[in-house]
Amino acid sequence: MSTARAKKLVVCGGNGFLGSRICRSAVARGWDVTSISRSGEPQWNTVTASATPPSWAHKVTWERADILKPDTYSPHLRTADYVVHSMGILLEADYKGVLQGKESPMAGLSRAFSATKAGSRNPLSRNRGEELKSQEKDGQLTYELMNRDSAIVLAKEAAAEKVASFVYISAAGGAPVLPKRYIEAKREAESAIASEFPLMRSIFVRPPFLYDSSRAITVSMAALTGMGAAFNTATGGIFGGFMGAAGAKPLKADVVADAVVEALSDEAVKGPVEIKEIGRLAEKGWRKGMA
């Protein structure tokens, strides 16, 4: 009697805070999991409470590749059933420079909150395998490049390899402290992927702020975000557009990871997956694991 082939999942950004948990959840399903990132295996003390690799980590293939150089990762997409884009930037370089005191607040914030910035050359018209390069004069990594174009190109490479399903980790919304372009780039990526690759089931997971006890700072920030969510609810959501994800109840990173894996395994799930649906999918996956 033949045994069914294990599903193959490729997670771009699998060594990150959320990506590593997606890998864990997929391993628990018995899937064949490959993580792609520039550094390979995570520095475990940055994504978990211990510097020692957890037992499930030995079941993941940790590959080094550059999301801006498709030729470095495209071979890993061959025979993949599912691909996840779980990488991007929350703060741009100039914004970080202001926070770190490396750039004057006036100059840095003016640049950080500029209405437009360049991504790469049109990711849909580029030749397959062609490297993505920042069009900013100083080569800055922008939201348009990292959060939009890298995802579109990964989806294009996945579609060319006839990958069945693609997950893009988007966001529930922006926040008052982030440039509007952060969420705009996310939504532009969703729109392009959905319209350009209709034969590939695309899922856009839109989580709020994520936390985990292994990262103490995320717990305290989640508490503040939770207060913002309570305020938003008490005021009838009238400030929701301004507060963005800061006005939504935070979720534990493991919950979102479990929801991603369940969404991939459920052929009925496609398009945007909002916060309530994330919770439902995570619970459904948990119940399967208990069966």
Rank of each mutant, 00 (worst) to 15 (best):
T48I: 00
A49T: 14
S50T: 10
S50H: 07
T52I: 12
T52V: 14
T52A: 14
P53E: 08
P53N: 13
P54E: 09
P54G: 09
P54M: 04
P54Q: 11
S55E: 14
W56T: 10
W56P: 02
A57W: 10
A57H: 07
A57G: 11
V60H: 08
V60E: 01
V60I: 08
T61K: 13
T61R: 12
W62G: 03
W62I: 07
E63M: 10
R64E: 14
R64Y: 07
A65P: 08
A65S: 15
A65W: 06
A65Q: 09
D66A: 10
D66P: 06
D66K: 10
I67N: 00
I67Q: 00
I67P: 00
L68N: 07
K69I: 09
K69Q: 13
P70G: 06
P70S: 10
P70N: 06
P70D: 05
P70I: 01
P70A: 04
P70R: 06
D71F: 04
T72Q: 04
T72L: 06
Y73M: 07
S74W: 00
S74Y: 02
P75D: 09
P75E: 12
H76S: 04
H76Y: 15
H76E: 04
L77N: 01
L77E: 00
L77V: 06
R78I: 06
R78A: 09
R78C: 03
T79G: 01
T79K: 12
A80L: 07
A80T: 01
D81E: 12
D81M: 09
Y82K: 00
Y82C: 05
Y82Q: 11
V83A: 12
V84W: 02
H85D: 05
S86P: 04
S86W: 03
S86Q: 05
M87P: 01
G88I: 06
G88M: 06
I89T: 10
I89Q: 03
I89P: 03
L90W: 12
L90E: 10
L91A: 13
E92K: 11
E92L: 01
A93F: 05
A93Y: 03
A93E: 15
Y95T: 06
Y95F: 14
Y95W: 14
G97T: 08
G97N: 02
V98I: 13
V98P: 01
L99S: 07
L99N: 09
Q100S: 15
G101D: 09
G101Q: 11
K102Q: 15
E103S: 13
S104N: 12
S104W: 04
P105R: 12
M106V: 14
M106P: 00
M106A: 15
G108N: 08
G108T: 03
L109Y: 10
S110E: 13
S110C: 07
R111F: 00
R111Y: 00
R111W: 00
A112H: 05
F113M: 05
F113A: 11
S114F: 03
S114C: 07
A115L: 10
A115M: 06
A115C: 02
A115F: 04
A115I: 10
T116P: 00
T116I: 05
T116C: 04
T116N: 12
